[in-house]
Computed example of a mutant assay.
Amino acid sequence: MTETIPVAVPRKGRPLEAVLDRLATRVEDSHHAPERQGVDVASIADSISSILRYEKAITKGNQTATDDVYDRLADYSDLSAPGRPEYTLLRDDRSGRPRRIVFDSVTIPLGDVELQLIGREEPFRALRTHDFAMGFDSADLVLEEVVELTADPLESIADLNARIDPHDTDVRVVAGLGDTVYHTLMGRPECRPDGSTAAFDRAFVREYEGPLCISPRYERLVEAVLGTDAIDGIEFCYPQNGREEEAAIADAGLGVYLTVTGSTARDHGLELGERLFPSETVLMQNLEEATDGTSIVADLFAGATADSELTV
């Protein structure tokens, strides 16, 4: 009998798209051939990503749907053909809490096992509670939940496992998917002492006293990547009333935010400093729940990725 391996994934967003992209690429490159069973993994992955982008645009008011949300939900979740994904409705966090269609699940045959991706709001926590043996989530969540805070800054995703207390959780990071953006230090030139041309880096923070603007959900992450000694004399502050992060950092003078190009930061008069820590979608495994089937899935996803910041 074919073993089904449930894997927790985010319900929407960049991490889910990274999982789908990796799945489509690795299945095509590997010895697994689900297309022989009537399942085109690349088409399924592309369809899920496209639907979720469309639904996000509707939720944000950038797109207008011609049919009712329940009609769309029923159409997306048509299970008449093998490998068709299912979707579900959630209340979005945006103003008015609109209903949003998000990913629920899909099952992909992989020869000896069936891979079942199941959407969860907090995949990492689902692994911590042993509800799943495997899952994907942002490396940021691992820092926010379980890594030990020390005076030494955490500079690499590859160092995450060494900073996880084995008495706290059985979950470990297995592989990265290469969808990397960076938590970057940035500041206004006026934040430097008079006449200084010092770079905005960890050394600057160690000597700095004053406000440091961050997203409130990243307080523990920032402590981990800067080190506890470096934040002595620093007062965390946060964007208020939905204000964009770069504008709030410009007001504070110094801050940390996720950046890709940094163009918006420069538009607010900010200089980009050191890339403090990479944010990347990672595959995690609960070591106590490992089986031969989970090893097959891990091997499928853990192929070498040149863009990944993770080497384990």
Rank of each mutant, 00 (worst) to 15 (best):
A252E: 05
P10H: 09
D93I: 00
G61C: 07
L117Q: 06
M186Q: 11
T180D: 03
V69K: 06
E223D: 12
G178A: 12
L254D: 04
E235A: 11
T264H: 13
R97T: 10
I101M: 10
D93Y: 02
L287E: 15
T59C: 11
E274V: 13
P109N: 08
T129W: 06
D194L: 11
L110R: 02
L16S: 14
E207S: 15
A81M: 10
T305C: 03
V27K: 01
P82Q: 03
V9W: 07
D67E: 09
D229V: 11
Y208H: 14
L226S: 01
T59R: 09
H130S: 15
Y70S: 03
L276G: 10
Q116M: 13
D75I: 09
D68E: 08
G96R: 07
A304T: 15
S156T: 14
T291Y: 08
P211Y: 14
T150N: 03
L73N: 03
V256A: 10
E121Y: 01
V27D: 04
G96T: 10
C191Y: 06
S196M: 15
D170R: 07
A57E: 15
D71M: 00
T228V: 04
D40R: 08
I234L: 14
L276F: 05
L272W: 05
H183C: 05
G242H: 07
E148N: 11
A198E: 14
L185P: 05
F103N: 14
V9A: 08
G269N: 10
V174K: 05
V174L: 08
L185Y: 09
E55Q: 14
G187E: 03
G135F: 05
L276Q: 03
S30V: 09
L110W: 06
H31K: 08
A81P: 01
D251Y: 03
G38M: 02
P85H: 00
L127Y: 06
I118C: 00
S77A: 07
V146A: 14
L143Y: 07
V256H: 01
Y238K: 04
T261Y: 12
L20D: 02
P109S: 03
A126K: 09
E207V: 13
E288I: 08
I231A: 01
V146G: 10
V106A: 07
P193V: 10
P239E: 13
V147Y: 13
N241R: 06
A304F: 14
L154A: 03
D194K: 10
V19A: 15
A265I: 10
L141Q: 15
